[in-house]
Simulated scan of single mutants.
Amino acid sequence: MGRILLILFFISFSSGPIRCARDDGDDDRGGFVRSLDPKLLSLKEEKLSHFRIYWHDIVSGNNATSISVVPPSNKSTTGFGTINVIDDPLTLGPELSSKPVGKAQGFYTLSSQEEVGLLMSMNFAFTEGKYNGSTITVLGRNAVFNKVREMPVIGGSGLFRFARGYVQARTHTLNMKTRDAVVEYNCYVLHY
């Protein structure tokens, strides 16, 4: 082992000085980052969009859209440690039969020992109208029994490239026996 380290030590000095890349805004100097004019990416003026959708988390029955992949590791009253993977419908109205506009895909984990608090990590993948194929990414804390929960929008794709903003979640219905829930999401997104 000592010989290998000694050989690596001599090789590192015989290969010449190590150069660090820096960003001067000039690609000819070996930098790996450069500044771009937003017009090159066809970015127009930034706008703020608001939309309201309903998230259907169906845990019970044969067509569950939320599956527990890691059960709690203890007898916690908050479900601490549980992880659910989701492919939840997003609709225009609170009824599951209302017009579908996409899916919420990702996971949530029960991450609080003191209350029912979730860490949400999901993409709203839209399938309707001009937003078909676009997504927004939500990542944040969701204290389930608070009247309104706010979580950040940390990015997006398609028409929501460079997205940032927040969502407000309000529970519309929650069946304590089945744990099925319908949550209203008001989304406020800055995008190009």
Rank of each mutant, 00 (worst) to 15 (best):
G2A: 10
R3V: 00
I11T: 02
I11H: 05
C20I: 02
D24V: 01
G25C: 03
D27P: 05
R34F: 14
R34Y: 14
L36H: 08
D37I: 00
P38I: 00
P38Q: 00
L41P: 03
L43Y: 07
E45V: 03
E46L: 05
E46K: 06
H50E: 15
Y54A: 11
W55I: 02
I58L: 15
V59N: 10
G61T: 00
N62T: 01
S66P: 11
S66E: 03
P71H: 04
N74A: 02
T77C: 08
F80D: 12
G81M: 14
G81Q: 13
G81E: 01
I83D: 07
N84F: 15
V85Q: 13
D88Y: 06
G93A: 03
P94K: 01
S97D: 10
S97R: 09
S98R: 07
S111G: 12
E115R: 03
M120S: 06
M120Y: 04
M120A: 06
S121R: 10
N123M: 03
F124N: 04
N132C: 06
G140W: 09
V144L: 15
F145S: 07
V148T: 04
E150F: 07
P152V: 02
G155R: 02
G158I: 02
R161F: 08
F162P: 09
F162H: 08
Q168W: 01
R170E: 14
R170D: 07
T173N: 13
M176F: 10
K177G: 08
K177M: 14
T178S: 15
R179H: 15
D180T: 00
V182M: 10
V189F: 08
